[in-house]
Design a protein around this nucleic acid. Structure first.
Lengths: 136, 136
DNA sequence: CTTGAAGTTCCAGTAACTGGAGCCATTTAG
DNA sequence: CTAAATGGCTCCAGTTACTGGAACTTCAAG
């Protein structure tokens, strides 16, 4: 399929898709006319990238995540370790999103009438899922 | 407090904190010696920015999120609408993270022995929280 | 065969940092 | 008190991850 269809399936702009090719995240075939020709697998990859990038993973991290699925040469226990590592990162993000959501929900409720919020909420906000102090 | 302490409390590098000042996300006081002087409130803001940026919200979105708490001039129902809007965005992100986590967990389990994954999982991966086809 | 949408490359610009040079202030060791 | 280390300051250049625009080709419809 052409880049346009790949774009609408993956929810990524064509520009970004071409950029991902430039930095070797994908390598679509070329048709005789010179147009890029995306397979279903390519679209899977792109869709994955779209999701992961939107969740705050860097390109480097995306590359790692992709390699978890596709690098058949890597030893199995490495894959597992990396997967578990990413899972705890994801758990952390989920926790942070939940706390952010809680903060916003409380705010929304408190804004129910027409009174302005004076917000003890901002305390909660800044606390978040903070570590107990004392560095890494 | 100085920028160093603000940095370690907010988990942001000093460079980034100065940059946030440049783009007017914070406005710390200055001590007599010219050093930036951060209040607890400033640190709250920074901590919030650190969390929100890490979760994939843009600077523009962070500005909006911050305004939800602090813009006392905005009408209350606007605040509520924006908060609800951001909440659904957050829910979407949480769903995506859960699906990503599920994918990785399955992978980790399947990689338990020393057999390489041949991955029907990649299907699941690319499906994610996709819309039912037919575009906006 | 023309018109328009969609593709191509290339180059420049933007967003959000990040690193480094060069200089002043503060703390700490001798 | 002086010297060195540490941390702050500004400014400017570089990086990452796109994004927009110009100039050209290709394809599908009328």
């Amino acid at each position: 399929m052409n880049i346009g269809q790949a774009a609408s399936l993956s929810q990524l702009p064509p520009k970004t898709i071409r950029y991902y090719e430039e930095i070797e995240l994908i390598n679509p075939a070329r048709a005789e006319n010179g147009y890029r020709d995306y397979s279903d697998g390519d679209v899977h990859r792109l869709r994955f990238l779209q999701r992961a990038r939107g969740l705050g993973f860097s390109i480097t991290e995306c590359r790692l995540l992709l390699s978890l699925y596709e690098d058949k040469d890597r030893a199995s226990h490495d894959v597992k370790a990396m997967a578990l590592d990413k899972i705890s990162e994801i758990d952390r993000k989920i926790n942070e999103l939940n706390s952010l959501k809680h903060t916003l929900s409380t705010l929304a409720e408190h804004c129910n009438g027409d009174n302005k919020p004076d917000c003890p909420i901002i305390e909660d906000l800044a606390r978040g899922s903070q570590e107990p102090r004392g560095g890494p």
